[in-house]
Amino acid sequence: MNVSYFVKRENLIVRIIGEIDHHSSEMIREKIEREYVRQNVKNIIFDFSDINFMDSSGIGVIMGRYKSVRERGGKLGVYSVNPQIDRVFQLSGLYKNKIINPYSSLEEAISNI
């Protein structure tokens, strides 16, 4: 499990490599939260291209970050979600309820978030 970041304009781009389950989610949450507090950004954009597994623990992580970005008037975005993980997102209503917006690439996410 590895979490890395970079900042582009008002966005914190978070790249997670590995699997998101209950075990890894606690570390992922702490790392993202610490970085978000440190950086002067509004939005968080997740790069999901190197995540090959996610269960509903990932939904909890997203919902928690939604609360954080809302306090700064920010939004959440995600790109490169594989079809299986996309189904977990859809099931939980995260797209429908505009908690996180899906994009096909980083560029699209940055220009449309």
Partner: peptide
């Protein structure tokens, strides 16, 4: 309080 989504059984059923 644990930031759980409450979607566990829903995912299993789906």
């Amino acid at each position: 309080e644990l930031e759980r989504s409450g979607m566990g059984f829903t995912v299993m059923e789906a």
